[in-house]
Design a protein around this nucleic acid. Structure first.
Ligand SMILES: [Mn+2]
Ligand SMILES: [Mn+2]
Ligand SMILES: [Mn+2]
Ligand SMILES: [Mn+2]
Lengths: 215, 215
DNA sequence: TATGACATTTAGACTTGACTAAAATACGCA
DNA sequence: TGCGTATTTTAGTCAAGTCTAAATGTCATA
Protein backbone atom coordinates (compact mmCIF):
# COMPACT_ATOMS: atom_id res chain seq x y z
CA UNK A 1 0.00 0.00 0.00
CA UNK A 2 1.23 3.48 -0.84
CA UNK A 3 2.08 5.87 1.99
CA UNK A 4 0.16 9.08 2.52
CA UNK A 5 2.76 10.99 0.51
CA UNK A 6 2.69 8.47 -2.27
CA UNK A 7 -1.10 8.72 -2.40
CA UNK A 8 -0.80 12.45 -2.90
CA UNK A 9 1.56 11.96 -5.81
CA UNK A 10 -0.71 9.40 -7.39
CA UNK A 11 -3.73 11.65 -7.07
CA UNK A 12 -1.82 14.58 -8.54
CA UNK A 13 -0.79 12.41 -11.47
CA UNK A 14 -4.37 11.31 -11.98
CA UNK A 15 -5.48 14.94 -12.22
CA UNK A 16 -2.58 16.08 -14.36
CA UNK A 17 -2.74 13.23 -16.83
CA UNK A 18 -5.78 14.74 -18.53
CA UNK A 19 -3.65 17.73 -19.53
CA UNK A 20 -1.09 15.80 -21.59
CA UNK A 21 2.47 14.77 -20.80
CA UNK A 22 3.38 15.05 -17.15
CA UNK A 23 6.93 16.32 -16.72
CA UNK A 24 8.77 16.30 -13.42
CA UNK A 25 8.50 20.04 -13.45
CA UNK A 26 4.73 20.01 -13.88
CA UNK A 27 4.16 17.44 -11.16
CA UNK A 28 6.55 19.21 -8.83
CA UNK A 29 4.92 22.59 -9.18
CA UNK A 30 1.43 21.12 -8.85
CA UNK A 31 2.44 19.57 -5.53
CA UNK A 32 4.56 22.48 -4.36
CA UNK A 33 7.53 20.17 -3.93
CA UNK A 34 11.01 20.61 -5.40
CA UNK A 35 11.82 18.83 -8.66
CA UNK A 36 14.64 17.00 -6.93
CA UNK A 37 12.33 15.57 -4.27
CA UNK A 38 9.75 14.80 -6.90
CA UNK A 39 12.23 12.80 -8.90
CA UNK A 40 13.16 10.80 -5.82
CA UNK A 41 9.52 9.95 -5.18
CA UNK A 42 8.77 9.16 -8.80
CA UNK A 43 11.60 6.65 -8.74
CA UNK A 44 10.12 5.05 -5.64
CA UNK A 45 6.72 4.84 -7.28
CA UNK A 46 8.33 3.39 -10.39
CA UNK A 47 10.07 0.73 -8.32
CA UNK A 48 6.64 -0.12 -6.88
CA UNK A 49 5.30 -0.41 -10.44
CA UNK A 50 2.81 2.38 -9.88
CA UNK A 51 4.27 4.67 -12.56
CA UNK A 52 6.71 4.58 -15.42
CA UNK A 53 9.09 7.41 -16.07
CA UNK A 54 11.52 8.57 -18.65
CA UNK A 55 12.47 11.93 -19.90
CA UNK A 56 10.78 11.58 -23.26
CA UNK A 57 7.41 10.19 -22.20
CA UNK A 58 7.27 11.89 -18.82
CA UNK A 59 5.52 10.24 -15.87
CA UNK A 60 2.72 7.79 -16.60
CA UNK A 61 0.50 5.91 -14.20
CA UNK A 62 0.63 2.16 -14.78
CA UNK A 63 -2.63 0.21 -14.75
CA UNK A 64 -1.92 -0.52 -11.09
CA UNK A 65 -1.15 3.12 -10.37
CA UNK A 66 -4.24 4.26 -12.24
CA UNK A 67 -6.41 1.92 -10.18
CA UNK A 68 -4.88 3.12 -6.92
CA UNK A 69 -5.27 6.77 -7.88
CA UNK A 70 -8.87 6.27 -8.93
CA UNK A 71 -9.72 4.81 -5.54
CA UNK A 72 -8.14 7.78 -3.79
CA UNK A 73 -10.23 10.17 -5.87
CA UNK A 74 -13.27 8.02 -5.10
CA UNK A 75 -12.65 8.32 -1.37
CA UNK A 76 -12.00 12.04 -1.63
CA UNK A 77 -15.25 12.73 -3.43
CA UNK A 78 -17.32 10.45 -1.21
CA UNK A 79 -16.04 12.25 1.86
CA UNK A 80 -16.88 15.55 0.20
CA UNK A 81 -20.44 14.35 -0.23
CA UNK A 82 -20.54 13.29 3.42
CA UNK A 83 -19.22 16.61 4.66
CA UNK A 84 -21.59 18.57 2.46
CA UNK A 85 -24.76 16.52 2.68
CA UNK A 86 -24.53 15.15 6.20
CA UNK A 87 -22.48 17.66 8.16
CA UNK A 88 -23.76 20.72 6.33
CA UNK A 89 -20.45 22.17 5.18
CA UNK A 90 -20.51 24.59 2.27
CA UNK A 91 -19.06 23.39 -1.04
CA UNK A 92 -16.06 25.67 -0.66
CA UNK A 93 -15.17 24.09 2.70
CA UNK A 94 -15.23 20.40 1.92
CA UNK A 95 -12.14 19.95 -0.20
CA UNK A 96 -9.49 20.64 2.42
CA UNK A 97 -11.10 18.33 4.96
CA UNK A 98 -11.55 15.59 2.38
CA UNK A 99 -7.83 15.87 1.64
CA UNK A 100 -7.28 14.46 5.12
CA UNK A 101 -10.04 11.90 5.16
CA UNK A 102 -9.21 10.43 1.75
CA UNK A 103 -6.16 8.73 3.22
CA UNK A 104 -8.15 6.74 5.75
CA UNK A 105 -8.82 3.54 3.88
CA UNK A 106 -9.36 0.42 5.93
CA UNK A 107 -10.96 -2.54 4.16
CA UNK A 108 -14.56 -1.77 3.40
CA UNK A 109 -14.93 1.72 4.86
CA UNK A 110 -15.27 3.27 1.42
CA UNK A 111 -18.02 0.89 0.39
CA UNK A 112 -19.94 1.40 3.61
CA UNK A 113 -19.66 5.14 3.29
CA UNK A 114 -20.81 4.92 -0.32
CA UNK A 115 -23.86 2.90 0.72
CA UNK A 116 -24.62 5.26 3.62
CA UNK A 117 -24.57 8.20 1.21
CA UNK A 118 -26.88 6.39 -1.20
CA UNK A 119 -24.27 5.60 -3.85
CA UNK A 120 -23.86 9.16 -5.07
CA UNK A 121 -22.66 9.70 -8.62
CA UNK A 122 -21.37 13.26 -8.37
CA UNK A 123 -19.69 15.22 -5.60
CA UNK A 124 -20.73 18.66 -4.31
CA UNK A 125 -18.77 20.32 -7.10
CA UNK A 126 -20.45 18.21 -9.75
CA UNK A 127 -17.35 16.09 -10.28
CA UNK A 128 -17.99 12.43 -11.03
CA UNK A 129 -17.31 9.92 -8.26
CA UNK A 130 -15.38 6.93 -9.63
CA UNK A 131 -17.36 3.78 -8.92
CA UNK A 132 -16.11 0.79 -7.01
CA UNK A 133 -14.96 -0.87 -10.24
CA UNK A 134 -13.12 2.25 -11.34
CA UNK A 135 -15.56 3.39 -14.01
CA UNK A 136 -16.31 7.08 -14.03
CA UNK A 137 -19.84 8.38 -14.47
CA UNK A 138 -20.14 10.61 -17.50
CA UNK A 139 -22.02 13.87 -17.68
CA UNK A 140 -22.83 16.27 -20.46
CA UNK A 141 -20.24 19.02 -20.28
CA UNK A 142 -21.13 22.06 -22.28
CA UNK A 143 -19.34 25.30 -21.47
CA UNK A 144 -21.95 27.91 -20.65
CA UNK A 145 -20.10 30.68 -22.45
CA UNK A 146 -20.30 28.76 -25.71
CA UNK A 147 -24.02 28.08 -25.64
CA UNK A 148 -26.79 29.88 -27.47
CA UNK A 149 -29.50 31.53 -25.38
CA UNK A 150 -31.73 28.97 -23.75
CA UNK A 151 -32.43 27.02 -20.60
CA UNK A 152 -29.64 25.05 -18.91
CA UNK A 153 -28.87 23.09 -15.78
CA UNK A 154 -25.52 23.54 -14.07
CA UNK A 155 -23.80 20.15 -13.88
CA UNK A 156 -20.24 21.03 -13.00
CA UNK A 157 -17.32 23.40 -13.02
CA UNK A 158 -14.20 23.49 -15.13
CA UNK A 159 -12.27 24.37 -12.02
CA UNK A 160 -13.07 24.30 -8.30
CA UNK A 161 -10.93 26.93 -6.60
CA UNK A 162 -12.68 28.01 -3.38
CA UNK A 163 -12.69 31.57 -4.63
CA UNK A 164 -14.76 30.63 -7.65
CA UNK A 165 -17.07 28.53 -5.50
CA UNK A 166 -17.80 31.43 -3.20
CA UNK A 167 -18.30 33.76 -6.12
CA UNK A 168 -20.86 31.39 -7.61
CA UNK A 169 -22.62 30.97 -4.29
CA UNK A 170 -23.12 34.70 -4.05
CA UNK A 171 -24.70 34.60 -7.52
CA UNK A 172 -26.99 31.78 -6.40
CA UNK A 173 -25.36 29.47 -8.89
CA UNK A 174 -24.90 25.94 -7.59
CA UNK A 175 -24.87 22.42 -8.95
CA UNK A 176 -28.29 21.42 -10.24
CA UNK A 177 -29.46 25.00 -10.54
CA UNK A 178 -31.45 25.65 -13.68
CA UNK A 179 -30.85 28.98 -15.37
CA UNK A 180 -31.78 30.75 -18.52
CA UNK A 181 -29.03 32.23 -20.63
CA UNK A 182 -30.61 35.42 -21.89
CA UNK A 183 -27.87 37.27 -23.66
CA UNK A 184 -24.18 37.57 -24.30
CA UNK A 185 -23.19 41.22 -24.52
CA UNK A 186 -20.22 41.10 -26.88
CA UNK A 187 -19.14 44.60 -26.04
CA UNK A 188 -18.17 43.96 -22.43
CA UNK A 189 -18.27 40.16 -22.59
CA UNK A 190 -20.97 39.93 -19.96
CA UNK A 191 -23.46 37.06 -19.87
CA UNK A 192 -26.97 37.85 -18.68
CA UNK A 193 -28.65 35.03 -16.78
CA UNK A 194 -32.05 34.47 -15.31
CA UNK A 195 -31.72 32.44 -12.11
CA UNK A 196 -35.03 31.73 -10.46
CA UNK A 197 -36.59 35.14 -10.16
CA UNK A 198 -33.26 36.97 -10.23
CA UNK A 199 -31.27 38.38 -13.07
CA UNK A 200 -27.52 37.84 -12.68
CA UNK A 201 -24.60 39.11 -14.72
CA UNK A 202 -21.39 37.14 -15.01
CA UNK A 203 -18.15 37.86 -16.85
CA UNK A 204 -16.30 35.52 -19.14
CA UNK A 205 -14.01 34.27 -16.37
CA UNK A 206 -17.05 32.81 -14.68
CA UNK A 207 -19.07 31.80 -17.74
CA UNK A 208 -16.12 29.86 -19.12
CA UNK A 209 -16.00 27.71 -16.02
CA UNK A 210 -19.62 26.75 -15.70
CA UNK A 211 -20.52 23.40 -17.26
CA UNK A 212 -24.14 22.83 -18.21
CA UNK A 213 -26.55 20.50 -19.89
CA UNK A 214 -29.69 21.56 -21.74
CA UNK A 215 -32.65 21.78 -19.36
CA UNK B 1 -0.42 21.36 17.29
CA UNK B 2 0.93 17.90 18.08
CA UNK B 3 1.89 15.57 15.24
CA UNK B 4 0.09 12.29 14.66
CA UNK B 5 2.73 10.45 16.67
CA UNK B 6 2.54 12.92 19.49
CA UNK B 7 -1.23 12.54 19.58
CA UNK B 8 -0.81 8.81 20.03
CA UNK B 9 1.51 9.34 22.97
CA UNK B 10 -0.88 11.81 24.56
CA UNK B 11 -3.82 9.46 24.19
CA UNK B 12 -1.81 6.57 25.65
CA UNK B 13 -0.89 8.73 28.62
CA UNK B 14 -4.53 9.70 29.11
CA UNK B 15 -5.51 6.05 29.28
CA UNK B 16 -2.59 4.95 31.44
CA UNK B 17 -2.89 7.77 33.94
CA UNK B 18 -5.89 6.13 35.57
CA UNK B 19 -3.66 3.20 36.54
CA UNK B 20 -1.19 5.18 38.66
CA UNK B 21 2.34 6.34 37.94
CA UNK B 22 3.31 6.15 34.29
CA UNK B 23 6.88 5.00 33.87
CA UNK B 24 8.75 5.12 30.59
CA UNK B 25 8.58 1.38 30.55
CA UNK B 26 4.84 1.30 30.95
CA UNK B 27 4.22 3.89 28.27
CA UNK B 28 6.70 2.23 25.94
CA UNK B 29 5.18 -1.19 26.21
CA UNK B 30 1.64 0.15 25.87
CA UNK B 31 2.64 1.81 22.60
CA UNK B 32 4.85 -1.01 21.40
CA UNK B 33 7.76 1.39 21.04
CA UNK B 34 11.23 1.02 22.54
CA UNK B 35 11.95 2.77 25.85
CA UNK B 36 14.74 4.73 24.17
CA UNK B 37 12.42 6.13 21.51
CA UNK B 38 9.77 6.76 24.11
CA UNK B 39 12.17 8.81 26.19
CA UNK B 40 13.07 10.89 23.14
CA UNK B 41 9.42 11.64 22.47
CA UNK B 42 8.59 12.33 26.11
CA UNK B 43 11.32 14.94 26.11
CA UNK B 44 9.86 16.50 23.02
CA UNK B 45 6.42 16.60 24.62
CA UNK B 46 7.93 18.08 27.77
CA UNK B 47 9.59 20.83 25.76
CA UNK B 48 6.17 21.58 24.30
CA UNK B 49 4.75 21.76 27.84
CA UNK B 50 2.36 18.89 27.20
CA UNK B 51 3.88 16.60 29.88
CA UNK B 52 6.29 16.72 32.77
CA UNK B 53 8.75 13.96 33.40
CA UNK B 54 11.19 12.81 35.99
CA UNK B 55 12.19 9.45 37.21
CA UNK B 56 10.50 9.73 40.56
CA UNK B 57 7.10 11.06 39.47
CA UNK B 58 7.04 9.42 36.07
CA UNK B 59 5.28 11.02 33.13
CA UNK B 60 2.39 13.38 33.86
CA UNK B 61 0.13 15.23 31.45
CA UNK B 62 0.10 18.97 32.08
CA UNK B 63 -3.21 20.82 32.02
CA UNK B 64 -2.49 21.62 28.38
CA UNK B 65 -1.59 18.01 27.61
CA UNK B 66 -4.65 16.76 29.43
CA UNK B 67 -6.88 19.03 27.37
CA UNK B 68 -5.26 17.93 24.12
CA UNK B 69 -5.54 14.26 25.03
CA UNK B 70 -9.17 14.62 26.05
CA UNK B 71 -10.05 16.08 22.66
CA UNK B 72 -8.34 13.19 20.90
CA UNK B 73 -10.36 10.70 22.94
CA UNK B 74 -13.48 12.73 22.15
CA UNK B 75 -12.80 12.49 18.43
CA UNK B 76 -12.01 8.79 18.69
CA UNK B 77 -15.24 7.96 20.45
CA UNK B 78 -17.39 10.16 18.25
CA UNK B 79 -16.02 8.42 15.15
CA UNK B 80 -16.73 5.09 16.83
CA UNK B 81 -20.34 6.13 17.21
CA UNK B 82 -20.46 7.20 13.58
CA UNK B 83 -19.00 3.94 12.35
CA UNK B 84 -21.31 1.88 14.53
CA UNK B 85 -24.56 3.79 14.29
CA UNK B 86 -24.35 5.18 10.77
CA UNK B 87 -22.18 2.76 8.84
CA UNK B 88 -23.35 -0.34 10.64
CA UNK B 89 -20.01 -1.67 11.82
CA UNK B 90 -19.97 -4.10 14.73
CA UNK B 91 -18.59 -2.86 18.05
CA UNK B 92 -15.50 -5.01 17.68
CA UNK B 93 -14.66 -3.40 14.33
CA UNK B 94 -14.88 0.30 15.09
CA UNK B 95 -11.82 0.87 17.24
CA UNK B 96 -9.13 0.31 14.63
CA UNK B 97 -10.81 2.54 12.09
CA UNK B 98 -11.39 5.27 14.67
CA UNK B 99 -7.66 5.14 15.43
CA UNK B 100 -7.14 6.58 11.96
CA UNK B 101 -10.00 9.04 11.91
CA UNK B 102 -9.26 10.52 15.33
CA UNK B 103 -6.28 12.35 13.87
CA UNK B 104 -8.32 14.27 11.34
CA UNK B 105 -9.15 17.44 13.21
CA UNK B 106 -9.79 20.54 11.15
CA UNK B 107 -11.52 23.43 12.91
CA UNK B 108 -15.11 22.49 13.65
CA UNK B 109 -15.32 18.99 12.19
CA UNK B 110 -15.61 17.41 15.63
CA UNK B 111 -18.46 19.68 16.65
CA UNK B 112 -20.33 19.11 13.40
CA UNK B 113 -19.91 15.38 13.74
CA UNK B 114 -21.09 15.56 17.34
CA UNK B 115 -24.22 17.44 16.28
CA UNK B 116 -24.86 15.06 13.37
CA UNK B 117 -24.72 12.13 15.77
CA UNK B 118 -27.12 13.84 18.16
CA UNK B 119 -24.56 14.72 20.85
CA UNK B 120 -24.01 11.17 22.04
CA UNK B 121 -22.82 10.65 25.60
CA UNK B 122 -21.39 7.15 25.37
CA UNK B 123 -19.62 5.27 22.61
CA UNK B 124 -20.50 1.79 21.28
CA UNK B 125 -18.49 0.21 24.10
CA UNK B 126 -20.28 2.23 26.73
CA UNK B 127 -17.28 4.48 27.29
CA UNK B 128 -18.08 8.12 28.04
CA UNK B 129 -17.47 10.66 25.29
CA UNK B 130 -15.67 13.71 26.68
CA UNK B 131 -17.77 16.77 25.96
CA UNK B 132 -16.61 19.82 24.06
CA UNK B 133 -15.55 21.51 27.31
CA UNK B 134 -13.61 18.46 28.43
CA UNK B 135 -16.02 17.21 31.06
CA UNK B 136 -16.63 13.50 31.07
CA UNK B 137 -20.11 12.04 31.48
CA UNK B 138 -20.33 9.78 34.50
CA UNK B 139 -22.08 6.46 34.65
CA UNK B 140 -22.79 4.00 37.42
CA UNK B 141 -20.07 1.39 37.27
CA UNK B 142 -20.81 -1.72 39.27
CA UNK B 143 -18.86 -4.85 38.46
CA UNK B 144 -21.33 -7.60 37.62
CA UNK B 145 -19.35 -10.29 39.41
CA UNK B 146 -19.64 -8.38 42.69
CA UNK B 147 -23.39 -7.89 42.61
CA UNK B 148 -26.06 -9.84 44.44
CA UNK B 149 -28.69 -11.62 42.34
CA UNK B 150 -31.04 -9.16 40.70
CA UNK B 151 -31.84 -7.24 37.56
CA UNK B 152 -29.15 -5.12 35.88
CA UNK B 153 -28.50 -3.13 32.75
CA UNK B 154 -25.10 -3.40 31.04
CA UNK B 155 -23.56 0.08 30.86
CA UNK B 156 -19.98 -0.62 29.98
CA UNK B 157 -16.93 -2.84 30.02
CA UNK B 158 -13.82 -2.79 32.13
CA UNK B 159 -11.82 -3.58 29.03
CA UNK B 160 -12.62 -3.54 25.32
CA UNK B 161 -10.35 -6.05 23.60
CA UNK B 162 -12.02 -7.22 20.40
CA UNK B 163 -11.87 -10.78 21.63
CA UNK B 164 -13.99 -9.95 24.66
CA UNK B 165 -16.39 -7.94 22.50
CA UNK B 166 -16.98 -10.87 20.19
CA UNK B 167 -17.37 -13.23 23.11
CA UNK B 168 -20.04 -10.99 24.59
CA UNK B 169 -21.80 -10.65 21.26
CA UNK B 170 -22.11 -14.40 21.01
CA UNK B 171 -23.71 -14.39 24.48
CA UNK B 172 -26.15 -11.68 23.36
CA UNK B 173 -24.64 -9.32 25.86
CA UNK B 174 -24.35 -5.76 24.57
CA UNK B 175 -24.50 -2.23 25.94
CA UNK B 176 -27.97 -1.41 27.19
CA UNK B 177 -28.96 -5.06 27.51
CA UNK B 178 -30.93 -5.82 30.65
CA UNK B 179 -30.15 -9.11 32.34
CA UNK B 180 -30.99 -10.94 35.48
CA UNK B 181 -28.17 -12.27 37.59
CA UNK B 182 -29.57 -15.55 38.87
CA UNK B 183 -26.76 -17.25 40.62
CA UNK B 184 -23.06 -17.39 41.28
CA UNK B 185 -21.88 -20.95 41.48
CA UNK B 186 -18.92 -20.71 43.85
CA UNK B 187 -17.70 -24.15 43.02
CA UNK B 188 -16.75 -23.45 39.41
CA UNK B 189 -17.03 -19.65 39.58
CA UNK B 190 -19.73 -19.56 36.94
CA UNK B 191 -22.36 -16.82 36.85
CA UNK B 192 -25.82 -17.78 35.66
CA UNK B 193 -27.63 -15.07 33.75
CA UNK B 194 -31.05 -14.68 32.26
CA UNK B 195 -30.82 -12.62 29.07
CA UNK B 196 -34.17 -12.08 27.41
CA UNK B 197 -35.57 -15.58 27.12
CA UNK B 198 -32.14 -17.23 27.17
CA UNK B 199 -30.07 -18.53 30.03
CA UNK B 200 -26.35 -17.80 29.64
CA UNK B 201 -23.37 -18.94 31.68
CA UNK B 202 -20.27 -16.81 31.99
CA UNK B 203 -17.02 -17.36 33.84
CA UNK B 204 -15.29 -14.91 36.13
CA UNK B 205 -13.07 -13.56 33.37
CA UNK B 206 -16.19 -12.24 31.67
CA UNK B 207 -18.27 -11.35 34.74
CA UNK B 208 -15.40 -9.27 36.11
CA UNK B 209 -15.39 -7.11 33.02
CA UNK B 210 -19.07 -6.32 32.69
CA UNK B 211 -20.13 -3.01 34.24
CA UNK B 212 -23.76 -2.63 35.17
CA UNK B 213 -26.32 -0.43 36.86
CA UNK B 214 -29.38 -1.66 38.70
CA UNK B 215 -32.33 -2.03 36.32
C1' DT C 1 26.29 -3.61 52.20
C1' DA C 2 26.97 -6.07 47.88
C1' DT C 3 24.58 -8.08 44.01
C1' DG C 4 21.46 -9.02 40.50
C1' DA C 5 17.32 -7.64 38.19
C1' DC C 6 15.14 -4.20 36.05
C1' DA C 7 14.56 0.63 34.50
C1' DT C 8 16.57 4.55 32.46
C1' DT C 9 19.67 6.90 29.60
C1' DT C 10 23.21 7.51 26.06
C1' DA C 11 25.13 6.68 21.59
C1' DG C 12 24.89 5.64 17.06
C1' DA C 13 22.22 4.34 13.12
C1' DC C 14 18.25 3.92 9.74
C1' DT C 15 14.11 5.35 6.87
C1' DT C 16 11.04 8.59 4.85
C1' DG C 17 10.23 12.58 2.68
C1' DA C 18 11.59 16.86 2.32
C1' DC C 19 15.32 20.78 1.12
C1' DT C 20 19.27 23.55 -1.60
C1' DA C 21 22.97 24.03 -4.73
C1' DA C 22 25.26 22.72 -8.49
C1' DA C 23 26.13 19.77 -12.53
C1' DA C 24 24.49 17.65 -16.69
C1' DT C 25 21.38 17.42 -20.41
C1' DA C 26 18.01 18.87 -23.87
C1' DC C 27 15.80 22.21 -26.57
C1' DG C 28 14.51 26.41 -29.22
C1' DC C 29 16.15 29.44 -32.10
C1' DA C 30 19.40 32.63 -34.13
C1' DT D 1 25.86 24.86 -35.40
C1' DG D 2 26.13 26.76 -31.29
C1' DC D 3 24.24 29.50 -27.32
C1' DG D 4 21.20 30.50 -23.70
C1' DT D 5 17.46 28.84 -21.12
C1' DA D 6 14.85 25.37 -19.04
C1' DT D 7 14.65 20.82 -17.30
C1' DT D 8 16.54 16.97 -15.19
C1' DT D 9 19.77 14.81 -12.30
C1' DT D 10 23.29 14.36 -8.70
C1' DA D 11 25.09 15.33 -4.22
C1' DG D 12 24.78 16.55 0.23
C1' DT D 13 21.80 17.99 4.24
C1' DC D 14 17.92 17.90 7.51
C1' DA D 15 14.06 16.67 10.84
C1' DA D 16 10.96 13.29 12.65
C1' DG D 17 10.40 9.10 14.51
C1' DT D 18 11.96 4.90 15.02
C1' DC D 19 15.63 1.04 16.14
C1' DT D 20 19.59 -1.71 18.78
C1' DA D 21 23.28 -2.11 21.90
C1' DA D 22 25.63 -0.66 25.63
C1' DA D 23 26.22 2.16 29.77
C1' DT D 24 24.38 3.84 33.97
C1' DG D 25 21.08 4.06 37.96
C1' DT D 26 18.00 2.18 41.46
C1' DC D 27 16.39 -0.83 44.65
C1' DA D 28 15.08 -5.03 47.14
C1' DT D 29 17.01 -8.49 49.54
C1' DA D 30 20.42 -11.98 50.50
MN1 LIG E 1 -11.90 18.15 -3.80
MN1 LIG F 1 -14.91 17.85 -5.46
MN1 LIG G 1 -11.66 2.67 20.86
MN1 LIG H 1 -14.70 2.85 22.49
Amino acid sequence: MPTLSQENYLKALWHLTAGGKVSLQRLASHLGISPASTLAMVRKLASDKLVTYNRAAGIRLTVKGQAAATQIVRRHRLWEVFLHDKLGYRWDEVHDIAEQLEHVAPADLTERLDAFLGHPTFDPHGDPIPQRDGTIPQRTELVLSEQPPGSYRIVGLAETRDELLRQLTSLHLTIGQVLELRDHRRFDDVFVLRVGSRTEHVGRAVADRILVEPA
